[in-house]
Amino acid sequence: MADGIVTLTTSNFDEQVTGSEKPVIVDFWAEWCGPCKMIAPILAEIAVEQPGVTIAKLNVDENPDIAMRFNVMSIPTLLVFDKGEVRKRVVGAKGKGQLLEELNEFLPTSR
């Protein structure tokens, strides 16, 4: 996680997400998804600016079971986990401003 973004897989998902003290924002993505590529740099910025949350990525192509488990049927989808529970679902690509607004309640350092 050199860039501060955790890479999730089927094998580490529960340990990294369910066991996390901080809220975890999971980006469900795939190589072939154009809008996913557009929001990736935004999430990288949020990872740097918001140390109070963990940003993680899950490749749905490689880990379809996790996508199915959380009913992800469209990407990009962001799921916010807090204390192991899904607290918020953001479907589709959005600009940074709109994304920060949607995620606001989970971002301790934003006002």
């Binding site: 154009g34 809008p35 049927m73 469209s74 990407i75 990009p76 479907v91």
Partner: peptide
């Protein structure tokens, strides 16, 4: 139902 079966992006969502 957008993102729950209704899609505007075949590349993004066909997989599901």
């Amino acid at each position: 139902l957008l993102g729950h079966g209704v899609s505007t992006c075949a590349t993004c969502d066909g997989f599901f």
